[in-house]
């Protein structure tokens, strides 16, 4: 009986070992899912105390249509004949802060300049810079850093003149917004 019990015990042990040593039924996929999140710092846009200024433009009395442009890249004013342009021009400048390496679009809708004292207005088409040159849409900028430094965005503009444009001083205000793309 001792022998039988011993043998039985051995058999049971073997059986138990066979089950516990059997390959686990766990399975893993050949490809695992990924988890993704894009986290963005709050976006801010601040005026850099620099206005867009077309300076002085002298019209001609003969019939004409001409477009005056202040390029956003700091190039001299485009002032076609028969216009005469003088004075110091400047582009507007804003600073945009957000998350490094993220694309931001600076939206610059047209702005209306009204003649001081009334009697006329001029529509200015704003021309925002982009730092994705040579391609890229105006106003698209890639943030080169996170935090306080940000990136400056220059904004030029252009408008059309004719001999019928009332002379005078024209002024208007921007409505610029920035948003992550």
């Amino acid at each position: 009986m001792r022998t039988l019990l011993r043998m039985t015990s051995v058999a049971a042990t073997v059986a138990a070992l066979a089950f516990t040593a059997a390959p686990a039924q766990a399975a893993t996929p050949t490809s695992q899912a990924t988890a993704n999140a894009r986290i963005l710092k709050p976006l801010s846009i601040t005026w850099n105390n620099t206005n867009l200024n077309f300076a002085d433009i002298v019209l001609d009395t003969n019939p004409f249509t001409a477009t005056v442009r202040v390029p956003f890249n700091g190039s001299p004013i485009v002032c076609p004949a028969p216009l005469t342009c003088s004075g110091t021009t400047s582009v507007a400048s804003y600073n945009v802060k957000g998350t490094n390496n993220q694309l931001v679009h600076v939206s610059t809708p047209n702005v209306t300049m009204n003649r001081v004292g009334g009697g006329g207005s001029i529509t200015v088409r704003l021309l925002a810079a982009n730092n994705l040159a040579p391609s890229g849409v105006a106003g698209d900028v890639l943030l080169p850093n996170s935090g306080n430094s940000g990136v400056d965005v220059a904004i030029g503009g252009e408008f059309d003149l004719t001999e019928a444009t009332p002379d005078g001083v024209y002024t208007g205000n921007f409505a610029v917004t920035a948003d992550y793309m």
Partner: peptide, 11 residues
């Protein structure tokens, strides 16, 4: 800020 990525380890 930035793009965050990770991989599951599902069994």
């Amino acid at each position: 800020g930035g793009v965050y990525k990770g991989t599951f380890n599902v069994t």
